Amino acid sequence: MKVALVTGASSGIGESTADELHKAGYTVYAAARRVQRMEGLAAKGVRVLEMDVTDDDSMVAGVKQIIAESGRIDLLVNNAGYGSYGAFEDVPLSEGKYQFEVNVFGLARLVQLVVPHMRNQKSGRIVNVSSIGGKIYEPLGGWYHSTKFAVEGLSDSLRLELKPFGIDVVVIQPGAIKTEWGGIAVENLLKTSGGGAYANQVKQLSGMFSQVDRGSEPKVIADVIVKAAQARRPRTRYAAGFGARPILFARRVLPDRAFDAMFLGALRRFA
């Protein structure tokens, strides 16, 4: 039986992915800081781990536990992450660093920890949950988009680096999804730049984020992750969820200034 580790599994995409992988026959380790939020998964037979992706000791201990109990790791789903929004001049540098700690360095450290085991097996798959935000950009989202651009570049390099060892690296690019992410992003946005010079942009962007009820259910992304995990020859990227494909298409074909105008025009609807 194949063994999977899913981070950020206490809610949203991570919780749904752990559930769907379990249904698909994987031995699933669901990892998150909030173990009590994973009681539903545990009741279904998913193994839960307390793990903080900003705490090296907890990541090392988690991977050691998986190897001790199951003897292998076949699939790593790096899903843990959040969106920190606010005008760049307003966001403390400490918050920018923490955004990278969660979204990039935690992901990178887990890759470092599981790759030796996958190399020894001569097989494995790493699925990094990025975002359409790894290819596009927004005002007031400089730190968040920087982390997702980093995940995209890191994943591309890893794909080539790990190919000789039978390890695949896949990127998932969700669009708008009904999770806690939007609420957290809006909360950070209002707290950081709700007043002052950027108040109008904050109003527009928070209005756009409030349309989360139009987003796709987390299961849409979970199903794509399971597909990527089981494919004999997975694609390098999977875009899914509300708006993902048309937005990425527009970014590919439009010059920067045209994309800027399109995005700012969309924002003005929420003025």
Rank of each mutant, 00 (worst) to 15 (best):
A4C: 11
V6E: 09
T7E: 09
E15P: 00
E15F: 15
L21E: 08
K23D: 11
G25K: 13
T27A: 12
A32E: 07
A32P: 00
R33K: 06
Q36D: 14
Q36H: 08
E39M: 12
E39H: 10
G40F: 08
A43D: 14
A43Y: 10
G45R: 11
L49P: 06
L49V: 12
V53H: 08
D55S: 13
S58N: 12
Q65E: 15
A68P: 07
A68W: 01
V77D: 08
N79I: 12
A80N: 10
G81I: 04
S84N: 12
Y85E: 01
E89P: 00
V91P: 06
V91L: 12
E95Q: 13
E101Q: 13
V104N: 03
L107F: 05
L107H: 01
L107G: 03
L110Q: 08
V111S: 04
V115N: 09
M118D: 06
R119Y: 08
Q121R: 11
S123M: 09
R125M: 06
S130K: 07
G134W: 10
G134P: 11
K135C: 05
I136E: 05
G141P: 01
Y144C: 06
Y144K: 04
H145G: 05
K148N: 12
K148F: 07
F149I: 08
E152D: 15
G153T: 13
S155A: 13
D156L: 11
K178N: 03
K178V: 06
W181E: 00
A185M: 11
A185Y: 05
V186T: 15
E187M: 01
T192N: 12
G195I: 06
G195R: 06
A197K: 14
A197T: 01
Y198Q: 07
K203P: 00
Q204W: 03
L205H: 04
S206V: 02
S206I: 06
D213E: 15
S216I: 03
V220T: 15
A222R: 07
A229I: 09
R232N: 15
R237T: 03
A240D: 02
A244N: 08
V253T: 08
R257Y: 07
A258F: 08
D260E: 15
A271S: 13
